[in-house]
């Protein structure tokens, strides 16, 4: 069957099986490896995509059920081929170790900051509760997001 979606700004039609998740189709059919597979049960967050602007677990969405909605993966953030300033903040602040959680963290953080542009550290932590990271202990991830927030708000 055909699954329709607007993937990173481009309308796509993809041949899928009914039993395939969006995650499988993104990775195995479309070769979009910026979504990762970590648990297939909605807990870890490495498969995060934005579905009509909200974070969703692509492992828990049937591809056929996307029904033309907008799907954004990490590469959808690129600005003129360069890094998004939040990506840059992750690099500068050492928020990346193994990097497996990173794409999901970035998308979740950005969707959150859309709604809440000036969060404190505690609010940032609460917003990230569905994205596990086994390497960093989260401190530097929160550092990076806080720094980005300060810069984006012109607070130095």
């Amino acid at each position: 069957m055909i699954a329709r979606m607007v993937l990173n700004g481009r309308a796509r039609e993809v041949e899928v099986r009914a039993s395939q998740t969006l995650l499988e189709v993104l990775r195995d059919t479309l070769g979009i490896f910026d979504v990762k597979e970590g648990c297939d049960e909605g807990v870890c967050g490495v498969c995060t995509v934005l579905l009509d602007g909200r974070p969703a677990s692509s492992c828990l969405v049937l591809a056929a059920g996307v029904r033309g909605r907008a799907v954004v993966t990490l590469r959808g953030l690129e600005r003129d081929g360069g890094l998004h300033p939040l990506q840059d903040a992750f690099v500068r602040h050492g928020a990346v170790q193994c990097g497996f959680c990173t794409p999901g963290m970035l998308l979740t953080a950005l969707a959150f900051l859309e709604r809440e542009p000036r969060p404190d550290r505690e609010a940032i932590r609460a917003a990230l509760e569905g994205n596990l990271c086994r390497c960093t202990g989260y401190t530097k991830i929160v550092d990076a997001i806080s720094a980005y927030v300060r810069e984006a708000n012109g607070d130095g």
């Binding site: 690129e78 890094l83 840059d88 690099v91 500068r92 990173t102 794409p103």
Partner: peptide, 23 residues
């Protein structure tokens, strides 16, 4: 010195091909 890691740049852009990102 706290130099940013070369692999971090790849990783934030999801340019790192992990073992499962291979076909």
């Amino acid at each position: 010195h706290a130099v940013p890691r070369h692999d971090a740049r790849d990783k934030v852009a999801a340019a790192t091909a992990y073992a499962a990102d291979w076909a």
